[in-house]
Design a protein around this nucleic acid. Structure first.
Length: 318
DNA sequence: ACCACACCGCCGTTTACGTCA
DNA sequence: GGTGACGTAAACGGCGGTGTG
């Protein structure tokens, strides 16, 4: 599918891309744990959130990262009610993991063409056979569902056991191949379509949660950069004020000065109480003054060429 | 190379259910 | 106890991407 990520332009010239890499190209199966992972194109001075770091490694059990209160509540509710509307089959040990990990079943395989694919399923759902399947599978409800003729879709919550097993499976793979889907559906006494829908909705919830986390992180980045920007502007003002009053300037402790060694192109943080802080005219050999007052936090442009840095413009000024 | 088809995942939306005031 | 608002999970339809014949 197309890249449908969200991008964010921060006011400080940052361009952040939250592309949720929905590349379902050729990795329809278990490789797509990388799906929906934001690709940050930014180099900030702050550590990325642990979640982001973790996601790139993607051994991450998503459900451990995000515990949904709503889901827990639902499970709790369902559990407390003690109503299991979907009685698990007696023989519920189906090895839905037995397929090879690359497990792309042939598109023309019987299973694939009969049980997967929402079009065929949806069309087939109109048929009598699948009505029966849905009636029996989706709800083995204790209250009578009436005759089969009810066209309104019944939506009852999944039982705690069903949700748990689905979650467990989702931890292992956030997508299912047809065989896995079929086996899981059988195990849960649900229709494959229901399993498919559950996984789809679950992926959507995961993505939504991740987006919220990312937004929170970006908000913090923005706040930090704003603060940094404010601080630097204040420093610029101080420098300008000092330049306008040379007498005062001579007797004051100067603010920190950034200089770059022309030979090694390293940025040094230095300050001095004498006029030596004036931009060096010659090649200064690592002017690491003895009285460095305060370190400047590494900032995004510290490694830029010196003429690109905003504080190095005064050469053109009078 | 192009087309048609099947399949799949994602997205936005609808619908039914459960909870709470 | 009945009811409406609200949140949320389940389900749907559509769209785009990919693979295959």
């Amino acid at each position: 599918m197309g890249e449908k990520g969200s991008s964010l332009e921060l006011g400080l010239g940052l361009s952040l891309s939250l592309g949720c890499g929905g590349n379902n190209s050729s990795n329809n199966n278990n490789n797509n744990n990388n799906h929906n992972q934001p690709s940050f194109k930014m180099n900030l001075m702050h550590k990325p959130s642990p979640q982001l770091v973790q996601n790139h490694n993607q051994k991450t059990p998503w459900n451990e990262m995000f515990q949904y209160p709503a889901e827990r509540n639902q499970d709790t509710r369902s559990f407390l009610r003690g109503i299991d509307v979907n009685r698990l089959p007696a023989s519920s040990t189906v090895d839905y993991n037995c397929e090879d990990e690359n497990g792309v079943s042939s598109p023309n395989s019987t299973i694939s063409s009969s049980i997967s694919g929402k079009r065929s399923e949806r069309e087939a759902n109109n048929g009598d056979e699948n009505d029966a399947e849905r009636a029996s599978c989706s709800r083995g409800s204790d209250d009578e569902d009436g005759g089969g003729g009810d066209t309104s879709r019944k939506k009852l919550r999944l039982s705690k056991e069903q949700s748990m097993l689905l979650e467990e499976t989702f931890k292992e793979h956030n997508t299912l191949n047809p065989k896995q889907k079929q086996a899981l559906a059988k195990q849960l006494n649900l229709s494959p379509r229901q399993v498919e829908v559950w996984f789809q909705n679950r992926r959507a919830r995961t993505k939504l949660k991740q987006t919220e986390v990312d937004c929170e992180y970006l908000k913090r980045c923005c706040e930090n950069l704003t603060e940094e920007n404010r601080r630097l502007q204040k420093e610029v003002q101080e420098l300008r004020a000092l330049k306008l009053s040379p007498q005062l300037y001579m007797h004051m402790n100067p603010p920190t000065t950034l200089t770059m060694c022309p030979s090694c192109e390293r940025v040094n943080v230095s300050s001095s109480s004498s006029s030596s802080m004036v931009a060096p005219t010659g090649p200064t050999r690592h002017p690491q003054g003895p009285n460095v007052q305060r370190p400047i936090p590494i900032n995004p442009w510290a490694t830029l060429p010196i003429h690109h840095r905003p504080l190095d413009a005064p050469a053109s000024r009078s």
